[in-house]
């Protein structure tokens, strides 16, 4: 089913439960984000991108695969906006459109890496297997 960007933005807000209007543009989410440097679109920008229905850019963004789901932005946001939930919603949208899971349990062992924090893998598995 084809959706306009506006409809996709509404869907993202619905899935995530985020009210983007609550954002006061303080940037504390990006300031808290450990993956900030890896991202092309930063957590605080996610909020305004969804608000402005620039969804195509978000779907193509590499940021959605860089977010660790550590929820530091959710914890620290003074306005209770929950940017990580937005990112999660965009990820889900991509995964659903691909029509399959990105990661299966069988793939996990070969991805194990000494350097990698286990939390990363756990959250990666969680977010890619929705």
């Amino acid at each position: 089913m084809h959706r306009t960007e506006q409809e996709q933005a509404e869907l993202i807000k619905e899935i995530s439960g985020v009210n983007t209007k609550k954002c006061m543009k303080c940037g504390k989410c990006s300031a808290s984000c450990p993956a900030y440097e890896e991202m092309d679109i930063r957590p605080h920008q996610f909020v305004s991108y969804v608000q402005n229905a620039d969804v195509k850019a978000l779907l193509e963004s590499k940021s959605i695969w860089k977010c660790l789901s550590c929820f530091a932005c959710v914890e620290r946001c003074p306005r209770d906006v929950k940017p990580a939930k937005l990112i999660e919603a965009v990820r889900l949208m991509v995964i659903r459109e691909r029509g399959g899971n990105y990661l299966t349990p069988g793939e996990v062992p070969e991805l194990l890496d000494e350097e990698l924090p286990q939390q990363l893998l756990a959250s990666a598995f969680r977010k890619y297997s929705k």
Partner: peptide, 13 residues
Amino acid sequence: EYGVNYIKGQVGK
């Protein structure tokens, strides 16, 4: 006049 550096953005940590 006093060269205070103002940066827009809340500190995370």
